[in-house]
Design a protein around this nucleic acid. Sequence first.
DNA 1: CTAGGGTTAG
Length: 494
Amino acid sequence: METLIPKISTKKTNFFRSRKTRKFPLLPFKAKWQQNFDQQQAMETLITESTTTTQNPNLLSLLIDSFTKYKCDPTPSAYSFVIKTLTRNSQFDQIPLVLNRLEKVEKFDIPERFFINLIKLYGDGLNQIENAVDLFYRIPNFRCVPTVYSLNALLSVLCKSKQGLLMVNQVLLKSTEVMSIRLEESSFFIMITALCRIKKFGYAIELLHMMLAEYGYEPDYEMYSRIFMEVCERGDYDEVMGFLEEFRKVGFVLSGENYSDLIRVLVKNGKGKEGLDMLYRMKSDGMKPDVVCYTRVLEGVISSRDFEKAEELFDEMLVLGVEPNVYTFNVYINGLCKQNKIDEGFKMVEYMEKLDCKPDVVTYNTLIGAVCKVGEVKRGKEVLRMMGLKGIGGNVHTYRILIDGLIGKGELLEACGLFEEMSVKGFVPRSSSLDAMIARMCEQGLVGEALKVLNKIVERNVAPGEKTWEVLLCESKFDFNDATRNNFERLVGV
DNA sequence: CTAGGGTTAG
């Protein structure tokens, strides 16, 4: 019975027995084990020493000391620990010493990952681009074969600054010619993306060409789309159209997002007609433009004053089941107002409410602007009151539009009242808007009122405009009180 | 994974 029980009695007896009855010497095995054990001890010593000794210890010495103490060789992980700790403690000046020892003294291979992290540290963290490049070139000295991964890491560092960009060429050359690293699509993607980010589209496009011509890599849609989006983001019409041509020449079809970006650029550059054409083209490419596309194009045709097309587009949306939203309605109402179809505009508001598409400040500002333009400021004020009832407050623009309308009609006291109201709400008008008001008030002898307004804007650190200064200088009637004078002096910086 | 974008204004 007892003999069947596995020999797991006590460790001590087992240990001694196995020692005595062992047939083959286990020395090499044991040595390895012992070495691991020593290294572990050394590592522990290093870790405790590094945390207990004074600030900014010399970690390399600690490493060397710990491992000599246990008579074993330092391990790669010990070096990793040292680098990590140095980084965390910002003791960057010690890193080169560690590298030198790794290069000249140690014999073990170093994984590429180690260099990739350091390249990123040098480039992105410390902004020491030359060091990043030098380290990259030095990788083979560390018994490590650099691959495209470290090259990619270096490239993304270099592409982030002008100084780095200047070195890209040299790095590419050396890594291909001397280090025999072959660029991959990923390398191009990194460079192209980085270049787009810093708006160097010319270089990005050049790389796109180089990829195909010199490396035989077909740039994929992703690359083109990336550049296209960025080019659109900048919004330069010629640049966008130039790249669009290329985009299409290679045979790629624009995505819905590409079209949307493109249309935005066209509309912003006053090309309403082209925007509309793009919408057609989008549809013929089998895509259904969404509300945003329609709204953008609608804006485009309206600013080109093609109101017929605007009507058509709006109808088309409804027919195709693209539900207009506040933005769409606002643009559309703006179009109606441009045609002086103000009442139709107001009818649209009712229609919106029926569709449960709540009009917003923009909707009302558009209409208020329209009625003020035809001199019906009272109606505008009425709209403002209505807005309030519906829970939509006016904003700076609302008040400015109304005040300008009132000034235009010479109703200065009323303008003053509105100014008061907007001030209470915390809206600070721009000085140019008030300039006219103050000047006109002085003209009409409302000097006291003008002064009140003036004082209020100066209180809010808005410097009076040119006209106001002019009036101030001419008007000897002005009787400043102390508060006003103080505020003025503060503003003018006396 | 479906988010957000897009609107008025001298």
